[in-house]
């Protein structure tokens, strides 16, 4: 043991540095294995292909179901990713490694949430053009991309918190969707409504209410998670 450490005050990394370290670690590990993103991606593609064949829609109806199909796909694929991301930490005992670090435990939440969001957005970036081709619907609109970003942030914010709770149980694969979907209903409904409005060419005033719900939901759940994450991971 070196003298400098003995009886001195060891450094405590800042919330930002610890969050960045967790994000970097998650992205590096995923870049090597592609375990999580590949599962989410295959699942998403299967869902939109199944919907495409099952519904056999004409062009007009396709436009009206697009928001619903997209958000159903994102929600289920997101749940898959959230479950896997947290259970990988738990199964290898690495959650204890994170909890042993002298950092604010919110850093663990923010690090995992940002990684989960990055994985979800990556899947969405791949799914959107494929969906556009399969359903012949133009999805490349900045306002729609903004709604997808806000909806994904809200979904991941609450999903990361709930996955940290469910991962500590034996029935985590079942428990996460049971806990998550009821809590995520406001964000999913608002995202579907706003996306529908944008695709139907509605005025900004018409999508203002769901847009506000999305923003408020994101802020509230990020704040709630920041406050309670410490208690959630406590044994």
């Amino acid at each position: 043991m070196t003298d400098k450490m003995q009886n001195s005050n060891p450094p405590h990394p800042s919330l930002f540095k610890a969050t960045f370290a967790i994000v970097k670690k998650d992205l590096s590990a995923e870049l090597r294995s592609f375990e999580l993103v590949s599962a989410m991606l295959v699942f998403s593609l299967l869902v939109i292909i199944i919907f495409n064949f099952a519904l056999e829609l004409d062009v007009k109806v396709r436009q009206s179901v697009t928001a619903g199909v997209l958000w159903t796909t994102f929600a289920f694929a997101g749940t898959l990713g959230l479950n896997r991301s947290m259970s990988a930490e738990k199964d290898r005992g690495c959650m204890d490694g994170l909890l042993l670090a002298p950092v604010d435990r919110s850093a663990i939440y923010f690090g995992k949430a940002i990684s989960n969001l990055a994985f979800m957005l990556l899947v969405e970036v791949i799914v959107l053009p494929i969906y556009s081709v399969l359903y012949n619907v133009n999805l490349f609109r900045w306002d729609l991309i903004g709604i997808i970003l806000l909806g994904s942030i809200g979904y991941v914010a609450v999903g990361t918190l709930l996955s940290a709770m469910s991962v500590q149980t034996r029935t985590r694969e079942v428990l996460l969707p049971i806990l998550l979907f009821p809590v995520a209903i406001p964000v999913l409904l608002a995202a579907v409504k706003a996306s529908n409005g944008i695709l139907a060419g509605a005025d900004f005033a018409e999508i203002l209410t769901p847009l506000n719900i999305l923003i408020v939901y994101d802020v509230v759940f990020i704040a709630v998670a920041f406050m309670v994450f410490d208690f959630v991971v406590e044994e």
Binding site: K25, S28, R92, G93, D96, L100
Partner: peptide
């Protein structure tokens, strides 16, 4: 140090 190494296998 526990019986689990608390290491990331893909790093």
């Amino acid at each position: 140090v526990s019986h689990q190494p608390l290491l990331y296998p893909d790093l």
